[in-house]
Structure formats: C-alpha cells, structure tokens
Amino acid sequence: MFAAGRRKHWSSKNVITSGARDMSKNRRIDIEEISGITVVKLLEKKILDEANIEELGKELFGLVETSGRRKLILEFSDVEYLSSAALGKLITLHKKVVAAKGKLVLCGIPKEILEVFKITQLDRILTICADLDGAIAKF
C-alpha cells in the first residue's frame, strides 16, 4: 500500500514496529515510531462493530494514558467504512491527547471516509493531512 518513496522515508528513520493484538481477535492496529512520533496504522477495513470499536478505543487511549505517547498520527488508508461510534472514539482520543499537551494528526483518509469527517464538520477540530509525510511535517 505504501509508495516506494514513503517506504524509503520510513526506513531512513529510527523505526520501531509493533502490533497491538487481542488474543482472540484480528489485529486492529500497527504501531511504528518515527523520530519520536507514534504512527498508528488502522488495519481494519470496516470499523463498524461496536464491540470492536470499544476495543480499538481502549488500544488507542492506552497509547496516551498508559504508554505516555504525546505525538500521534493515525493512518487510515486501509479503512473502507467508519461508523459514528468510531468517530466518537477519535474525538475522545483527540481530547485525551490535547489534555496531555500532545498532538494528534489523521492522514491517508480515503475520499469516502473524508466525506464523513466533512459532513460532521470534524475536520474543524481534527488535524487531517493527505498523506503520512504531510502528517509528520505537522510536528
């Protein structure tokens, strides 16, 4: 999915990769560290199921509340569907990051999903970039 140029960009940095996994479920996120920025790639195509969204929320909140990460990028390029319940988790994550005096940037959002952010006007309060390079440049 990543363009060759971007992969080169990633590999030139200090990158630590790990996956967050619930033992009984599919992996929901991949986490990479790029120059002190935590890049979280959302792996699920459909973020619709409430129980799944709840678990995803816990994993994302844990990055801020437990792991103490302050610079977060969420990468959406694999996401095809997103419900309003998932939007709610993103808003709560945004609040937690701001409360911790950190920054959250969203990137790689497919056109259809971007419309959801525009309709709900969440693009007013969330920082959204077209791609990962643009998101990294926000820090």
């Binding site: 309003s84 939007l87 808003i91 709560t92 309709i119 709900t120 006007q121 969440l122 007013r124």
Partner: peptide, 21 residues
C-alpha cells in the same frame, strides 16, 4: 446539531446527521 460549537466535541450524536446526508 452535532456541528454546533457546544456539541462538536461530544463523542456521540452524529448518526442521524450522517443518515440524512
């Protein structure tokens, strides 16, 4: 209306708006 300033940061209440859109 979840887009009003006083409600924009509420984590719920957007489903109806999306369906209408």
């Amino acid at each position: 209306d979840p887009t009003l300033d006083e409600f924009i940061e509420r984590p719920c209440g957007r489903g109806l708006m999306l369906m209408r859109a």
